[in-house]
Design a protein around this nucleic acid. Structure first.
Lengths: 344, 344
DNA sequence: CACTACTGTGCATACGTATTCAGTGAATGA
DNA sequence: TCATTCACTGAATACGTATGCACAGTAGTG
């Protein structure tokens, strides 16, 4: 079954009447070999359908030409569910890897695993890309260890001063600002906020910063009683909105830190016979594919996943090459749809 | 930067006062080494945070412990778009790989590439899993070559007699039957069908077979004038529905070969001031995440992606081990929601 | 003509592991 | 006591590639 007798560089050497090292050089277009020899060798290689054995090459070169994309989860996370935002990142990361000449290893990880040992030490990958919403404080501890080990890795997440490791993320403050600013410009003055403000999720906290900033610029006071906690996910949004409703406080709009929360909130509003957007305007965050298709379509903040994937891959490649790289924020963009009431 | 001085089995050998082969054996729990030596070696390995170098191991063992998941596209495909159904498969495939002890390499492929050379010949992967809607006739030609080369691969797709290679797919005939049967039971007699019936997409053609079968069982004649072509994607569904509408033929329901087509069709119906489901009932196929969230929520045929991922991985692993594997159909399930009008 | 520079090639070797084979000492059996 | 088996270990080697080094031949320089 397995005896496919794959040709090796030595086979080519015999056929071409040269030595194995010459074959190796010729195939890599080394200027050390004469044009004549090079062409002959390459032709034979093509005829034999020869491919360099990556294991041998990697062993010799002590590198892997591979990047590992790791989606991590809280240890108690729902194993079947992948955050739709990460899925859209996946596509662009995959393409960026391909054009950078790297293979992509894909896996889910538990927060408790030893990532460095598993991938870089085992020479499975030259660098790592992490995606994950989870407990930030816990995650940072792991990261710090990785960083100390000299691993090459980049995380999609919040950019915070003095944190260990390299982070690429969207400008959450700007995103939160865009959403709130849009509602304020539309005349809303009492805008509820549904999101997680604990230190576990600094990204979401930054969106709240943007919410504050917009209020400040518009000279509108914040109503603390309109802030409700919701980690992520539809159910959380549903519950948070119910809490908001039962609090009896007045509001005309809701800003959410994720589309899933917004979707849950809309369901809760509907269940209470409130209409979106005529009674309450709603904005989300992420622009997951569903956002455009629900009814009313969801006004939300779009993160540039295409650019994000590119930057993530470029960053980790630079790290691998030993270049120094800085954390980076990517701009966000407001997608105005029906749920905020400013568009038909 | 790179001088991390990873420990090798030889380092452990020195520390343990044994030879390198003994370390290799001890770490693999070989019965050849005494319990005493084994424990000592394993302890030292743990202390040093030692990990076997997979490149060296693979080179020696001439295997890779890796499966490649390849999503292929027509050469002119939209590079940024991944079929949402494949994304849901991705999750279960990833987990199945992990529990089978394989790493997963992920990549997009053009139909014109030489997959065998790229992966198996280069010793990047022991086996391949293909996902893709595309030109089946063209694909089969490539597959035939792969098969002749003795590659280990499995495709998610239609199960057809005497085709080369190994296919795992859902029971499309059954799925198409379930959808049409449900509409017929609800009293619909003129049910339009939107899908691609060319030989390029046998999976979709099978769904049509199920549609026919249901009509036959119910003793309802097919109305050929209600069959319209739509390859996939929302726009195609939109256009096909417009064609259907402008044909002026009577109909009370539409069966679609994909959720995206159904979504496009619903938009077209709306644009023509027809209401779903009160004027026209619609059913889709795939149960992509959006299906549940649109309004009205979409009645559709669910494929068991969890089981599918597991079976795909199990199959390719069996192939790698040299066992013979048969193509297999997985059952489908009707998800009754609002768009068919039988549920509030 | 002698010396240097340069071009192209091959030799030897290393990457880290897993396996074949041979060998040691101890235990067993007669 | 000697032959035989057994349990364990180490020496040697191969997997296929890439690179430092030496070397041959040719061209260039004065």
């Amino acid at each position: 079954m397995k005896d496919k007798n794959k040709p090796t560089s030595l086979d080519i050497a015999h056929l071409a009447g040269v030595s194995q090292p010459t074959v190796s050089r010729a195939l890599r277009d080394s200027p050390l070999v004469s044009k004549e020899t090079r062409l002959k060798v390459q032709e034979i290689a093509r005829d034999l359908n020869y491919k360099v054995d990556v294991n041998a090459r990697n062993l010799r070169a002590q590198s892997t030409n591979t990047i590992a994309l790791l989606i991590f989860e809280d240890d108690d996370g729902d194993a079947a569910f992948i955050n739709p935002f990460f899925l859209s990142l996946l596509g662009s990361i995959t393409r960026a890897c391909a054009s950078a000449g790297y293979d992509l290893l894909f896996s889910f990880q538990q927060l408790s695993q030893d990532w460095n040992a598993e991938y870089e030490d085992a020479n499975k990958a030259d660098g790592l890309i992490f995606l994950g919403y989870g407990d930030y404080t816990n995650y940072i501890k792991r990261i710090a260890k990785l960083d100390a080990q000299g691993a090459h890795f980049v995380t999609w997440g919040p950019v915070i001063k003095n944190q260990p490791g390299l982070f690429i993320g969207c400008d959450n403050v700007q995103g939160g600002f865009l959403a709130a600013d849009h509602l304020l410009k539309a005349g809303h003055r009492r805008i509820a906020f549904l999101g997680d403000l604990s230190e576990k999720n600094p990204e979401l906290e930054k969106r709240y910063q943007g919410y504050l900033k917009a209020h400040k610029e518009h000279g509108v006071a914040i109503s603390k009683e309109l802030i409700f906690s919701a980690t992520s996910g539809e159910e959380q949004g549903y519950k948070a909105a119910l809490n908001l409703l039962s609090s009896q406080h007045q509001f005309t709009a809701i800003a959410c830190t994720s589309d899933l929360i917004a979707i849950g909130a809309i369901k809760a509003l509907r269940a209470s016979n409130l209409r979106v957007p005529s009674d309450v305007a709603v904005v989300g965050f992420d622009d997951i594919p569903i956002a455009e298709h629900i009814s009313p379509s969801l006004t939300t903040v779009q993160q540039d996943t295409y650019e994000a994937g590119k930057v993530l891959v470029d960053s980790v490649v630079s790290l691998i090459k030993g270049q120094s790289v800085n954390s980076k924020l990517l701009p966000t963009r407001l997608m105005v749809r029906e749920s905020c009431g400013t568009k038909k």
